[in-house]
Each structure stands twice: as structure tokens, then as C-alpha cells.
Amino acid sequence: MIRTSRFDLLARIGAAVLAAIILAAVVMPLFVPPDDPHPVDALLPPGAGHLFGTDQVGRDVFNRVLYGARTSLTIALAVLVLAALVGVTLGVLAGYSGGWIRDVIMRVTDVFLAFPALLLALALAAVLQPSVTTVIVAIAATWWPWYTRLTASVAASVARRGYVDAARCLGVRTPAIVFRHVLPNSITPVLVQLSLDAGGVILTAAALSYLGLGAQEPAAEWGLMIEQGESLFTTKWWVVTLPGLAILLTAFAFNSLGEGLRAALDPRRLTR
């Protein structure tokens, strides 16, 4: 389906960086436990003992960034799975059925889309207890309508294709038509969008944690690390800058991968 030759350089770099981050996030904690505070070693600059230096309470920043990757990637994965499940289900339903079902679903998504995502997430996170789960629920709640819209428009065009009509004429039941024909042929643009969105989810999660609504001490989370180190930005740059760079790098990797996927899966580039 995807031929690597169609992947441009940027997309390959994105994929490689992402693989490295995921590998580190998965493998590293198997060997190294999360670092405990050592107040004696607080705020050491990057060097031989501590590659990324240490934070205010003397924890290794490199260790924290990697544990942070775990949190951030978990949030991204959970949010995207949740949002895609809800969004794609409603989207296929709206796109294939049309009529009043479509109208109701699309009006509801319009309502959700009318709020800025961060604002809605903020409100939700404020009502619920601050935690990683809260962040996941809050972001997923603001993210699904995009997938509904996207899937609905694709599914509506798939529903008009010859093979769907042919299946209806053969007497194939509606659920089978939806799962066998409509869903598989509507899902590609959603997959592309998911990888494009992963970076955005991580940024939003970091923002919510930064605002104190997400992960709580002593958990390692990039946004939280930035919040805690903010006042040190001018003097002890590594405490803030390195988790910031981690966010940037991950977001960039997901976006490049998404762009590459988009190009590779573009039907105009598929050979006949």
C-alpha cells in the first residue's frame, strides 16, 4: 500500500526520529528507574555525570525527559484512539446514511467545533480532577469532531461509488456494506490526519499540564517540567529548554510523517 520510494526525505527523518523516541520511551525505563530527588545535586549544568543536567530538586533531566516521553506518547495514543473511534463511527454513520441522521450528527459536531479546542479542554479539565486521565478525556472531547467531519465527507463520496450500489443490489446488508466497503475505503485520510494531529495533541497536553491541569508531581511530563522550571529559564536554561525541545522534536516528527503519508497515499500518486 505505502511504497517507501514515495516517502520524501523529511518524512523518513520524521519516521526515524519517532522510532528513536518511542524506542527510548519503551526501552529506557526497563533499565533505569525514575530518578529520585537528590537536593545536593540540584541544578547541575549538562555535563559528564548528567547529560542534560539536573533540575531544582536534583533529578536527572535526561531521565525525566525520557519518562516524559512515555507520558506524552501515552496521552497522544489514548487521545487519538478515543477521538478516532468516536469521530470515525459518527462520520461513517453520517456520510453513509445521509438525511436527518447526517444533519443531527453534523450540527452536534458544529457545536463542538465552535469552541476553541484549548478553551474547551481547559473548562473540562477544570471540572474534573487534574490528572493524566483528565487531560486525555479533555483533549479527546475536543478532537473527535474533526474526524467526524473528515470521515463524513469521504464516506459520503464512497457511498456513491459503483461497488456500494452493486453490493446493495446483491442484497448485502447495510452493516456489512458499511464495514466491508465504506469504512475501509474512507479510513485512509483519517490515518493521515491522525499522524498529523499527534504533534498537536502532545502540544495541547503539555499546555494543559503547564497550566497545572494535567500530570501532577512527581510524574514526569514535558509541559509540567517546563512549568516548574519556567522561572529558571534565563539562568538555568537546560531545565526548561530540553523538555521544550523534546516537545518540538516529537511534534515535528509526527508532522513530517503525516505529510509523507498524505503524499504517499494520495490517490493521484497511486499507480493504476
Partner: peptide, 28 residues
């Protein structure tokens, strides 16, 4: 349904691009 069947033109994506020919025929 069993008495009246369509034959659409090839250009109209009359066959699901993701299915094997045998799977498409098996639907009927």
C-alpha cells in the same frame, strides 16, 4: 434482487479496489 442486477461501467469504481475479485463475486 435476485432477478434484476446492474452492470456498471468499469470507470465508475464498480469493483471495490481493496477487495480481491473472488471476494467481490462472493458477495452475490
Amino acid at each position: 434482487r435476485d432477478a434484476v442486477q446492474p452492470v456498471f461501467q468499469d470507470g465508475s469504481e464498480a469493483l471495490d479496489p481493496r477487495m480481491r475479485i473472488g471476494q467481490s463475486i462472493a458477495e452475490g
